[in-house]
Design a protein around this nucleic acid. Structure first.
Lengths: 194, 194
DNA sequence: CGAATTATCGACCCGTTTGTTCTATGCAAA
DNA sequence: TTTGCATAGAACAAACGGGTCGATAATTCG
């Protein structure tokens, strides 16, 4: 292994799969090392602790999420499509990431502040994106809102509101229809009288 | 709780979900009892051990499978549809049950014989069903095979062959096309020249 | 009502697991 | 051979987790 950083990356990839399935608590160093075909103690040559790996994994997943979202809004042109795409992907990816949240809330709240950091940073970024989307749609004459900032915040609030049942209630299939309703509400509210 | 048996049933339902997600080993009695909003030791009033619960769960799932399969072949009439339905549902349900198998192969092979019992019983039942399906299709003039027994065994062998990659390889989406190919092969083989 | 039975739970036990450390060893380059 | 990177086995303290037991609450029944 010429590059140490490269191997750290491989560990993150592998651990990510296991963490996402079993959560932080139920995932053991033994499993991670076995999946890498290495000795358990060898992992400690690259990472100081299990938490450190988890931290790197969450960071990695956060970046993945960011990438998917930016490409999702780039691949369409109209403001409504951009916003719709963003919300769709966001909710889908968040649902996939729910295991990480369950992992954190598993027992010990040690990582809580660390996760919260990522979370708050993402919140700010998301707000900026939404603000831009609304602003552009506005200046293109598709949307008709007074204040982009507050509208973006309102949308974000709704999105956050959808997360809770996503993570805590059983996954019923009416999520899609609820999402559809939200989208409908947002667009009709923005577009004025349909 | 008037009926003790009813509560055992609730435990099975709840434990089933957790087992199917985390496997036998990673599922703790603590989790099961918490999901039932009961004390950990209360569970032992209904079941003697964790293994006993697991046994009941597997038995329950096996019955569920049986039910789904019988309804699947009842709701259509033509022999080809019956056989096609049976195979489809069988493969889909087996894929869903793969977690239970992973659970067993997790480490200790204690339950192995117990699972193997259910398995062999199911094998016999399946063979009987397949034999009947082939036989009826034959007598209706849709199929054209010489020996229903051996044809049924051949079909079962193919189905078993499909299980291995289903359970052990990553779930690639070409499963459907592979299934389609198998179905095609079976029917064309049975129907003679198309 | 009170006794008997049913159901629940907290506290504890103790073998096993597991995150982490430490030391020894392989192995490539110089 | 020496140096430094990479690996893994052994050991360990701490936590975990299945299971037991006695006490207690809830319910049934006479």
């Amino acid at each position: 292994m010429v590059d140490k950083e490269e191997y750290r990356r491989r560990i993150i990839l592998t651990a990510s799969k296991i963490f996402s399935h079993y959560g932080f608590r139920k995932t053991t160093m033994e499993e991670i090392s076995r999946a890498l075909k290495k000795g358990k103690s060898s992992i400690y040559y690259y990472f100081g602790s299990k938490e450190e790996i988890f931290e790197a994994v969450v960071l990695y997943e956060a970046n993945q999420l960011r990438m998917r979202l930016t490409t999702a809004i780039k691949e369409v042109d109209s403001p409504t499509d951009k916003l719709r795409n963003y919300i769709y992907i966001r909710m889908r990816e968040f649902a996939k990431l729910s295991n990480y949240y369950n992992a954190v809330f598993d027992k010990n709240l040690d990582h809580y502040d660390f996760i919260e950091n990522i979370r708050s940073r993402y919140d700010r970024e998301e707000l900026a994106i939404l603000r831009l989307l609304v602003y552009v749609g506005n200046s293109r004459g598709v949307f008709a809102v007074k204040d982009s900032e507050y509208t973006a915040m309102a949308i974000q609030t709704m999105l956050k509101g959808m997360e809770v049942p996503l993570f805590w209630r059983k996954r019923d299939l009416d999520i899609n229809s609820r999402l559809e309703a939200i989208l409908n509400l947002i667009f009709n509210g923005i577009l004025g009288k349909s």
